[in-house]
Design a protein around this nucleic acid. Structure first.
Lengths: 206, 206
DNA sequence: GCTTTGATGATACAGTCGTATCAAGAAATG
DNA sequence: CATTTCTTGATACGACTGTATCATCAAAGC
């Protein structure tokens, strides 16, 4: 316990390095798929040696989980920015901003969606990873949507007989399904956005 | 051209063998994920030697594509059976039967959904596979739904101001999104089914 | 300047992958 | 019975995987 430090060594922000490497993985995941993200490929993409990747992430699972957390952060800040950019913070704008932020309509959201679907099938294959992941992002989004829908009902903007949780789950599932169709090349982001907006508009016009 | 056949050899139905092997791959894909479906694992699952898998499928891509075709057939027959089981062939029953057949509510539909999502991420990674795949199943389903919705409009069962293609795309995306949430463990098949039915009911009650 | 930490390099290990090649046995039909 | 096809077995190849181990070098701060 009496560990005397005679000299203070080179200091480097570990969080920055880990983020640099983790985002290299996310780039690979969205460009070539998560299964192409080997330790060596990640190192090359990050412009760093394989040894350093092992230095900051003792195992690949740790790299995978940490990068997933970064991905969640990026999606969350994108949602916030989208909502903020809409101006007045109304229930309708929150719902609209959240869903349109998730939908792959531009390069950033396309990257996010691609990376997320890569993780999605990985989690479905290895359920242990889900346990260690913990925070289920969709659940939080759904609760947020349900709250705003309830507020909209109280403001008389939505049919009051509807069940907010059911509608919220449906809206998120619709958005995710539309995103999948974009990734599958069935339609482009603009077409998907039109479909989503059409549904939101019908919901908010009783 | 004058190839005289002195003796007729052992005859085996190649299609049956290929199906046997292909469905072994689908079992692995839905149980442990498509990336766990190596040639050796497929051979073991099919109760057959690795050499025989190579004998009936010269390359893995051929095995993958053929199995995907089998998967499509199984989904198509499930949809047909679901529609038929509903009794009267009305537009509403066709829409309802199609979507509820796709949704993972029982063991079979869960297997189908799991296997399909495995292929989904594979296709998104390797676009060449999409090209050689050809038939885009979702497009056909969407057109079928749009036709039935149009018929329902003409019969006065649905708001005539709605765009059938938009509604059809939305319904299919909703169903797929709900299926993803079931696979992700966010809710069970029964809860997803309730949400889907709720949306269909609201659509058919103007 | 010395010590600690960050970073690289080369290399190795045991697996698994798809694919290929050899020989040889089993079955069915003319 | 002979011939053709089906089927297995063992084995090998090169490539890739995650992980590990060596030594070495650069940088920063006391």
């Amino acid at each position: 316990m009496f560990q005397e430090r005679i000299a203070v060594p080179k200091r480097v922000n570990h969080e920055i390095r880990r983020r640099q490497i983790g985002e290299a993985l996310l780039r690979i995941a969205s460009a070539r798929g998560l299964q192409s993200a080997s330790m060596r490929e990640v190192a090359a993409e990050a412009g760093v040696s394989l040894r350093l990747v092992q230095y900051y992430f003792h195992t690949k699972e740790e790299l995978l989980l940490t990068s997933l957390a970064y991905l969640g952060e990026r999606l969350a800040t994108r949602v916030e920015n989208h909502i903020r950019a809409l101006g007045p913070v109304t229930p309708r704008n929150i719902v609209y901003g959240t869903l349109t932020a998730i939908l792959p309509t531009d390069a950033e959201s396309l990257d996010l969606t691609r990376a997320y679907t890569g993780y999605y099938t990985l989690v479905f294959t290895d359920p242990d990873l889900t346990t260690r992941h913990g925070a289920t992002y969709p659940d939080k989004v759904e609760r947020l949507l349900a709250m705003q829908l309830t507020a909209a009902q109280q403001a008389g903007q939505i049919d009051a007989t509807l069940n907010p949780e059911t509608i919220a789950a449906g809206l998120l599932a619709l958005t995710n399904g539309l995103g999948s169709s974009v990734l599958g090349g069935q339609r482009d982001g603009a077409a998907a956005l039109r479909i989503l907006i059409d549904h939101i508009d019908r919901l908010f016009k009783p």
